[in-house]
């Protein structure tokens, strides 16, 4: 079942079911992707709502066994959204380098680390920078270069 997938049944693992992780999981689930969400706190899964059709795993994702339980080795996409930057970085690297997951994205709060991990081939997304640019655009318009 896992083999010969087309673009539509991509298997996506989301680590961390906070505001970002849960929202992303709901959007992807609505787009009919197969989604697994990992969080160490079972209570976090209530954020997913009733219409979420993916799977949830209650486990600490910094333990390799939890990641294997989520079949990280079969994933097409891994997104790390825990509230700890370094945990996100560790898991993203495990996914990218050890399990050769094709697309790996890590959420980072701290902008100064971004460059290091871009160099390692980990795509990062920094809400701090994105929000700052957006706010600037609202205030002074988007014509000026950042």
């Amino acid at each position: 079942m896992m083999n010969n997938r087309n673009k539509n049944d991509e298997y996506i693992v989301i680590v961390g079911c906070g505001r970002l992780g849960s929202h992303l999981a709901r959007l992807l689930s609505k787009a009919r992707k197969s989604v697994v969400v990992i969080d160490k706190n079972e209570g976090a899964f209530h954020r997913l709502g009733d219409d979420f059709s993916g799977f949830t795993i209650e486990a600490d994702a910094i333990e390799i066994d939890s990641l294997l339980q989520a079949k990280i080795n079969k994933a097409d996409v891994v997104v790390t959204t825990t509230n700890d930057d370094n945990t996100n970085i560790l898991i993203a690297q495990i996914a990218k380098i050890i399990y050769k997951v094709p697309k790996v994205i890590a959420r980072l709060f701290e902008p100064s680390r971004q460059q290091v991990y871009e160099e390692l081939g980990i795509e990062t997304l920094c809400p701090t920078i994105l929000s700052a640019i957006e706010l600037k655009n609202i205030i002074v318009g988007d014509k000026m270069e950042v």
Binding site: T87, R113, L120
Partner: peptide, 16 residues
């Protein structure tokens, strides 16, 4: 005491 922190410290030290 935090494994991910220790990894990141060593990687930044080496890479940057």
């Amino acid at each position: 005491t935090d494994d991910p922190d220790n990894l990141v410290i060593c990687q930044i030290a080496e890479k940057i």
